[in-house]
Design a protein around this nucleic acid. Structure first.
Lengths: 345, 345
DNA sequence: TTGAAAGCGCTAACAG
DNA sequence: CTGTTAGCGCTTTCAA
């Protein structure tokens, strides 16, 4: 049986209060008694029982991260950032991965009610009005990452600007029939990227054409941000009876990969027949020479934890929103001049 | 303030013991009182406080996963398997990621002493004699994944067989100067893969030549299983004053990617000048046409949790070891006949 | 079957 | 500065 605070107190010849004080290094304590207690702790190899601490302190020293499991690279990189930062504080990370939609609500509810975590990071998942309100009036801080909701703190990337950059680049390269493949339109990033695309078109006097746009709303299992969805979408685009697009902006690299497959299967060449630009800059992108829009994922993770910690510590400055800029990475898939451009938004 | 078991008891007109019983659905309870209590619980939106439960039960209902963060795909896939299984049980997953070596020991110690978790999954990380012993005599179950230690439960893949398959395939294709690039030799998978490579060589009467082997021991920050390491290793291989290899077996796909880059930079063609086979079958492998050895990663994750749960439940059958077979995936990078083979080990 | 009461191991207020 | 004590919210005997 592991030793308790009582064992330590007895061994050191002090009261348990004193032991507790040195554990939490309270300032008012004699160097001498502190030394005695520390010795006893070492001798007994004592370690506070976290559950007991949590109960007494009403604080768990752990946070939850609710995250979908579809998006490979983005997810890993973000988690890496989160872990980096969280291990600097003395907190633990509980991971809740949402593989089927209803689990999101389940996890949100649990974090809210079980008091097992001191705060939550909601990643790439939308929060409804109901839960937003519940979090707001609860004392469980939450910060949204790669998502947004009016009164909640959030950290995201400037999706409209990123999409704007990509589309503009295509336009500048001389393409005129620029299609777009998007994720599910109910997802916020998807909406924003569409907006950026339209803005760029508008800015350069190009029309937005329904027959050049397809949202991956047909992917019911996931968020549409996957390879199969991109493939299917591109198939649709190419089989329409209208003039074929000469370029396509795809709202995620993973979809772009699928789209590229479809393009090749139609006997078309990239970028000669159809140029393509993606979004995310996943590792694969470099290998297949896919031009894309890069987001500072690691930094997002770090900042998210930083903010959450601040909120947990009671630094209540409501309404923190941070938007990171994006960077256009130019590779072969979009054709044109091959000079690298680093337009930071 | 959230409601407690007392609130529920009062509202239902029963004692707290009764409430506790219905929460843990103890059998001896009248349908009627149960109904009353359930109603009160619903009315108050009551949820047990996990810390209090943990303290009273001496059980946290969460497990730790200690995992390195270097290996992208393997890591995600494994975590996915772990999560899948763990969410079936009512457990939480605390993630400890080891980015610098000393953290491994730190986390092991914590899981052992803080009693915050009921069990631990140690992934792709070696455990020393000291800690192994401590776990053995503690009541904290541990299962090693992609690792091994004599008296501990472990789940791994048959690395020697996988390496043997890969090397044999190369030999059968007619290559004779087959090099190998390995991870850090202190890592167990690296050792086993080397063993498989040598076995295949031996079996076919080919000599093992020092000048055709390089272990990525020069990568101090990580385990050598990364792209840069593979690149550097291949550079070494190609710049040696001996006859160049006509094929290379690389102990991980990610290193293979680096190696392929190096090969091309030397103006050599794959597979005509140098054939290459990797290990892991990461997503990228398919895109670059890399032949490789696939491991059933997801299944490993699921089985690991299953075993851990069994141990936590007290089903103490010491010495559980499971070894998964591998599958050779043939693509373009190894040349020869392009027929797919599915040699399951 | 159910209620009362004694912990689980720790923190924090209160005396001294 | 330090010991004592009353909880934190729940589980689990022990009686009734």
């Amino acid at each position: 049986m592991a030793s308790t605070i009582y064992d330590v107190a007895k061994k050191a010849g002090v009261g348990i209060g004193t032991v507790s004080r040195v554990i939490n290094n309270s300032p008012q304590i004699t160097e001498e008694t502190k030394k005695k207690v520390l010795a006893a702790i070492k001798a007994l190899n004592y370690q506070p029982h976290t559950a007991a601490q949590s109960l007494a302190r009403k604080k768990s020293n752990s946070i939850a991260c609710i995250i979908p499991f579809f998006t490979g690279y983005f997810f890993v990189e973000l988690l890496r950032g989160i872990q980096q930062k969280i291990s600097e504080c003395k907190y633990d990370l509980i991971l809740y991965s949402v593989d089927v939609a209803h689990k999101k609500e389940l996890f949100l509810r649990r974090t809210l009610e079980e008091r097992k975590v001191d705060g939550v990071l909601l990643v790439s998942l939308q929060i409804g009005k109901t839960f937003a309100r519940r979090f707001l009036k609860s004392n469980v801080p939450i910060v949204l990452v790669d998502s947004y909701f009016p009164d909640l703190d959030s950290i995201s990337v400037d999706n409209v600007k990123g999409a704007y950059q990509a589309t503009t680049h295509l336009i500048n390269l001389g393409y005129r029939r620029i299609a777009m493949i998007d994720g599910q339109l109910k997802s916020l990033p998807a909406k924003s990227r569409l907006e950026g695309y339209r803005k760029a078109l508008l800015r350069y006097g190009l029309p937005f054409r329904e027959d050049l746009f397809v949202a991956c709303d047909f992917e019911t299992e996931a968020d549409g941000f996957n390879k199969q969805a991109g493939y299917t979408a591109m198939q649709k685009l190419l089989s329409r009876n209208t003039e074929r697009p000469d370029a396509v902006f795809v709202s995620s690299d993973i979809q772009a990969l699928g789209a590229m497959e479809a393009i090749r299967e139609h006997g078309l060449k990239i970028p000669d027949d159809v140029a393509v630009v993606g979004f995310d800059d996943i590792e694969l992108a470099r290998y297949v020479g896919l031009s894309t829009v890069r987001q500072p994922i690691l930094e997002m993770g770090r900042l998210a934890v930083e903010r959450l910690m601040a909120k947990i510590s009671g630094e209540v400055d409501m309404g923190f929103k941070h938007t990171f800029g994006t960077e256009l990475i130019i590779r072969e898939s979009c054709g044109g001049k091959k000079t690298a451009s680093r337009e930071s938004a």
